[in-house]
């Protein structure tokens, strides 16, 4: 990684690179490596027992399953939001554009208590829903909604610049060739946005899987019902079962690496398609 630069007359490569690598190693790489080293304390069968125990499996299933579902909702809702923000003019558009980032900027604990109070049985939205027989707070549905909340910005913000830059000529070309508006959207526009849409989806999914603060308040945290994997890590830690906590963390971390790999692929795909056409 630190091979000498090919050609540059600028100074400071050694210093900046040295600083970067030192800091990166000390703060990020060594601590993360420690996680894997710690897992090595467990034998393979112990590791497997831990991650396949009922409670762990359930927590992982809740985190991954609900995060996937929430990311799907974010994909659809994100597309609708981005379409409205980019293609239409309506009063308050700029304001709505700005507040898309709030789930990203709002501290998770604040989001957690706000969503819980909102959807509690006597809450602004919880009460009407309860009268319909739908219980949100302290159920998996609550977890799902919290995950939808934190995933909102990802699809919108990855697709938005691509949709803005999309050449209006390709829509006109499709129209001239006899495509209906619907055909133009589904066969030309959406496929052009696909790399960005998938990127946004993956980011929202990854964020929701690891999410802690906004979820634990509304989750109810019943083992085997509404307990998410990050919470189980915290619980194992408080019981001083470090190895168990670490095993769950490793599973989640491996998943994170997978997502990163997928995202890099997506980015390369988007870049090769964008090459030189415009």
């Amino acid at each position: 990684m630190s091979a000498a630069p090919k050609r540059s007359s600028l100074p400071g490569f050694g210093l900046s690179m040295g600083l970067t690598l030192t800091w990166l190693s000390l703060l990020i790489l060594i601590p993360l490596a420690g996680l894997f080293v710690k897992t090595a304390d467990l034998s393979l069968s112990q590791f497997l027992d831990t991650v396949t125990s009922n409670r762990t499996l359930h927590a992982l299933r809740i985190s991954f399953g609900l995060a996937f579902a929430a990311a799907l909702v974010n994909l659809v809702a994100g597309l609708i939001i981005v379409w409205a923000l980019v293609r239409y003019r309506f009063p308050g558009r700029r304001l709505f554009d700005a507040i898309v980032d709030i789930p990203f900027a709002l501290p998770t604990a604040v989001a957690g208590i706000a969503l819980t109070t909102l959807f509690a049985q006597n809450g602004w939205l919880g009460a009407p829903l309860a009268s319909l027989g739908i219980k949100v707070a302290f159920t998996p549905l609550g977890i799902f909604l919290a995950m939808v909340f934190i995933g909102i910005p990802f699809v919108v913000r990855t697709v938005q610049p691509v949709l803005i830059d999309l050449d209006v000529e390709i829509e006109e070309a499709a129209a001239c060739l006899g495509a209906s508006r619907w055909q133009t959207i589904t066969r030309v526009i959406i496929p052009s946005l696909t790399p960005a849409i998938l990127t946004g989806f993956a980011l929202a999914f990854a964020r929701a899987v690891g999410e802690y603060g906004s979820v634990i308040f509304i989750a109810g945290n019943l083992p085997n019902v509404s307990e998410i994997a990050p919470l189980l890590i915290v619980i194992r830690l408080s019981e001083f079962r470090y190895a168990d906590a670490t095993a769950i963390a490793v599973v989640m971390l491996v998943f994170s690496f997978l997502i990163i790999f997928v995202l890099n692929r997506l980015q390369r795909w988007a870049q090769t398609r964008a090459l030189a056409v415009s």
Partner: peptide, 11 residues
């Protein structure tokens, strides 16, 4: 991409 809980756990 790392869960905040894991970020704490490593320390």
């Amino acid at each position: 991409s790392v869960s905040p809980v894991i970020s704490g756990l490593v320390f």
